[in-house]
Write a protein that binds this DNA or RNA. Structure first.
Lengths: 207, 207
DNA sequence: TATTATACGGAGGGTGCCTCCGTATCGCAA
DNA sequence: TTGCGATACGGAGGCACCCTCCGTATAATA
């Protein structure tokens, strides 16, 4: 896959205008781009080898880069985590859109919550880190968090408009509930499925 | 209130045999007991002033005690947190027993989950810390965690026996779900109540 | 090739965790 | 009351990590 053509010092990470913008002066330097990519790769490796409490130094080392370079590209730890999981989060949002497009509203909701569960069993590092950053810094604006919430909202509101899901909760409520359980350190697949079934029963409009 | 007559280097914290046991040699020294108590008080103050990421040093300082003393009494940070919230957790379990004794099974469940929500809005520090310790150390045996789970189990199984709550989940499942949402950094009262209502709908046996 | 904006890297200051061990104190016994 | 273990104290200091700063290197342009 191609690299995402990041421009600014990263973490603005907005959309893909082609580089035709009359940007201030010069293009991004090639060594900077290279180090950026190396860092993301290294972070992915180190996180998957050592879990979410890997040190920044370990990642810099793995990338063959100094600490200064790491922090220039990713000022906060969460910025690096976001970069690592950027694609995954995009796919999550995409899955939500596809579910809404291809299934009846209720089935889309079921389908998507199930996808989220499967996702989070694999990407525990990401969710945990996301949660923790948000914990100690609740005013933080994180694009990945917003996209996750957006996914929940999309699927839920779709079901609510169709009158098959209760109307008194919203996407961020549901994310709190499901996301909370999915970051539980003890969660295993069967348990997640049981709980999800129950949540869905509570979510369904009681007729 | 009287101090809880801790014997061993703490955190065994078993039950209240009176001191008649032919314990190895000598009784606990008075200065040790005094420092123990001071530390718990200091920890409570510091946690409530600075939140859950207060440093151990700050607590030792507040207690007027050296770092060595702190760690002798509470080898791990979570041990200190447990000591601070010991009474609260006891009350939680007591509340569960009372609910079961005084209400019909379903009402007891509703009542108790509501109590847990109110509790956790106040004691966010404790729950978060408990969760985090467990996160990085899942094999950890924590008496407080077990008592919280026990509370969930008590109320839930009571309702299940009466046939008013679905039978396919257990106390630790429910703790994962409700506890997860209650440690969410954004949780506010109204939101918690909405979600709890939904969880209860999912929990109720669908007839 | 010269110039300059841009980026690199790692030394080092700051903080927090936890241990170690010389010193102080307590409790008991004579 | 004094003496003497056993017990507990405390803070210096080692370690690990976080993050910044700035002298040096290098890519991009002219």
């Amino acid at each position: 896959m191609l690299r995402p053509v990041t421009t600014t010092p990263d973490h603005a990470s907005d959309e893909e205008k082609d580089d035709s913008s009359e940007s201030s002066h010069r293009a991004i330097r090639s060594d900077a781009q290279r180090n950026h990519d190396r860092l993301v790769v290294a972070a992915r490796e180190v996180f998957s080898a050592q879990g979410s409490d890997a040190s920044m130094e370990a990642i810099a080392l793995q990338a063959g880069v100094g600490a200064g370079t790491l922090y220039r590209h990713f000022p906060r730890r969460i910025d690096l985590v976001e970069a690592v999981y950027r694609n995954d989060v995009d796919e999550l949002l995409l899955a939500a859109e596809k579910a809404v497009a291809n299934y009846a509203p209720w089935e889309a909701l079921v389908n998507w919550l199930d996808a989220f569960l499967r996702y989070s069993l694999g990407k525990r590092v990401f969710l945990t880190e996301l949660r923790e950053s948000f914990e100690k810094n609740p005013q933080l604006r994180l694009s990945s968090r917003e996209r996750v919430e957006q996914s929940f909202t999309l699927v839920l509101e779709n079901a609510q408009r169709a009158g098959v899901a209760r109307a008194d909760i919203d996407g961020s409520d549901l994310m709190l509930l499901v996301g909370g359980m999915c970051t539980g350190p003890t969660l295993v697949k069967a348990q997640g499925e049981r709980l999800l079934a129950m949540v869905l029963d509570g979510l369904r409009v009681s007729d």
